[in-house]
């Protein structure tokens, strides 16, 4: 996972940031700061999936300079806070792996559809690989998108009858309408 340095917020070097605050008002500020930090960090590093067990050792939740670490239980509660705003969703039943959506699935969907309209490639079939890894989309926000997340986005579009996902063994493509 290539790490891109992001500009850490001031809280990141503030030790109480890594302890869940009992005072309700303080806690809400703290959790809000964590939420925006997680989204920003994932966006900059193009991280679509967080594994709670692994990432508690990573720089996001572990500040080695002040030697403070966010506890897994707290990470979980912040991720579930993110879920409330559709910015995350657990992948497995044990809530160990979480998909992070710095753009919500709906935002992603409209972004992709706008791109398709802009390129005028309705009614043609694109492979999923082409869509998120191809040369043509290298400049787009959704470039390099995790395949599972992409599928969830396309299913959303499919519901609105804006595309059809074709999942054959050898070909995984999508046709936009």
């Amino acid at each position: 996972m290539p790490e891109v340095d992001i500009e850490w917020p001031w809280q990141y070097n503030f030790p109480p940031f890594f302890t869940l605050q009992p005072h309700p008002e303080t806690r809400s500020k703290q959790v809000a700061a964590w939420k925006s930090l997680i989204l920003e960090y994932c966006e900059k590093n193009k991280i679509y999936v967080i594994d709670v067990r692994e990432s508690s050792q990573g720089p996001l939740f572990y500040n080695s300079t002040i030697n403070r670490k966010l506890e897994q239980s707290v990470i979980l509660s912040i991720l579930s806070e993110l879920q409330k705003t559709d910015n995350s969703a657990p992948v497995d039943k044990l809530n160990n792996r979480w998909e992070i959506y710095w753009h919500t699935l709906e935002e992603w969907a409209s972004m992709i559809y706008d791109y398709v309209l802009g390129q005028g490639i309705q009614n043609s079939v694109l492979t999923l690989h082409e869509l998120v890894q191809g040369e043509d989309t290298a400049e787009e926000m959704f470039f390099g998108m995790n395949q599972e997340v992409l599928l969830k986005v396309l299913r959303l579009l499919e519901k609105d009858r804006k595309c059809e996902v074709i999942l054959e063994d050898d070909v995984q493509g999508v046709k936009f309408f």
């Binding site: 030790p15 109480p16 890594f18 302890t19 009992p22 005072h23 008002e25 403070r68």
Partner: peptide
């Protein structure tokens, strides 16, 4: 002080 939101804790 914490209860009044004047302080916050660092439980390390």
């Amino acid at each position: 002080a914490e209860k009044f939101g004047k302080c916050c804790r660092d439980d390390a």
